[in-house]
Design a protein around this nucleic acid. Structure first.
Lengths: 220, 220
DNA sequence: TTGCAATTCAAACAGTTGTATGAAACTATC
DNA sequence: GATAGTTTCATACAACTGTTTGAATTGCAA
């Protein structure tokens, strides 16, 4: 068998199993059985189990990040170097949400894998996420250009909250469906994106641009 | 040694180790060494490792939930059965945020343990979190009373986003500090609470109360 | 075909894990 | 102080883990 047939058989099998059963209880032996290759092949081709997981996650998140930047760049070029805040936020949360949500029965293996990665967060994945800061900084810069009167602190909180809503929706989509008894439609991804974008944009633009936290409401 | 001295020595040691090193690489042998008790004591007193973790988490989250409900009840009684939305939201996210954030060097073991539980999410903890829906429903009901003109869908999304911002801030506090280069002050818990409450309240009250998602911004 | 490198394979390795056991030590009751 | 019930203890268990090894096989170039 050609070398990279084995390689990609392992990748495919691993992604499928991790997506279905989580990182916690999938062993190398499960993976090689599913891929129908020899046990030693994983270490031969990837070095270690962690590097296999890392490669899976890197591949997927590079794709998402590239799409994010593509949308951001397109928007800024169209606006002559300055895009509306809503469009920036949409470029930030859109690719992730579109990649992970949507009708459950038609979610790709990649989507289910990324949901798992978002929920379980094993060490090799955490290491990679920690290197995402430079990527996020590009969005912070774009947001600064869109809202020059806002303080950096406000910009970062807005970025942070936008990611919070997107990731929490991915992580807890099942619970939200149950809690709302189906009233919140988790299948309409575009509506969810607009909802997140709208709330984040409001948070970033509402109130005076003092750079300070909103005054505390006096009731208690 | 009296029976519950061993029990609580195990609980204390386990919480400390899990808080410091995460669930992934703390074994029963680490715990019993730290607690200076026999290996078999864990299974004798708790039945299994998972039940030990579950007991730790249940204890802490019961405390948080009790505090949440106390604040909610107090607010509703003071308002004659109807509390302002900001106060409800503050009762929802305040106890959690106060329990997990604050100056790093003075965070309790319990706080650090809850942060871990929020990041790593092992099976026994996930099982318990899934049973929290009834608890959250009480807040949904209070929010409905506070905003009777809002649709249920809007209420649930608002509740969901409030939790999203609170939990994501706990999970990613370190990254936000790094990303913002220290501009976002993660030590001022009260300011964070007000920020989350303010954004969530705005999301719940802004715009027409049509019960539909905000209209999509036309730029792209 | 020969030679060499890349790949596959079965098997074993070395270590760790949570749990179970049965005897010993302890504690409280009568 | 004997008895019954708890709790502790050292130890073993059984299973599983990721990784390594060295020989066998394959693929390809000369």
């Amino acid at each position: 068998m050609a070398s990279d047939q084995t390689r990609s058989a392992i990748l495919a099998a691993a992604e499928r199993l991790y997506a279905d059963r989580g990182f916690g209880d999938v062993t190398l032996r499960d993976i090689v059985a599913e891929a129908d290759v020899n046990l030693a092949a994983v270490n031969y081709h990837f070095g270690s189990k962690d590097e296999l997981i890392a490669e899976l996650f890197v591949t997927r998140s590079i794709a998402t990040n590239r799409e994010r930047l593509r949308e951001l760049k397109a928007a800024e070029e169209q606006g002559g170097g300055r895009a509306p805040i809503e469009v920036i936020l949409r470029a930030l949360v859109g690719p992730t949400l579109r990649g992970c949500l949507g009708p459950e029965n038609q979610r790709s293996t990649a989507a289910r894998f990324m949901i798992r990665a978002s929920i379980e967060s094993v060490p090799p994945i955490r290491r990679i996420k920690n290197r995402e800061i430079d990527h996020l900084r590009k969005f912070a810069n774009a947001m600064r250009r869109a809202l020059p009167e806002r303080s950096d602190e406000e910009i970062y909180w807005g970025l942070h909250f936008a990611l919070a809503m997107a990731h929490h929706t991915i992580r807890e989509s099942e619970r939200l469906t149950k809690l709302s008894d189906g009233r919140c439609d988790l299948d309409d991804v575009d509506a969810i994106i607009e909802r997140v974008v709208s709330v984040a944009a409001t948070a970033l633009t509402a109130g005076k641009a003092t750079g300070k936290a909103p005054a505390r409401v006096a009731v208690r």
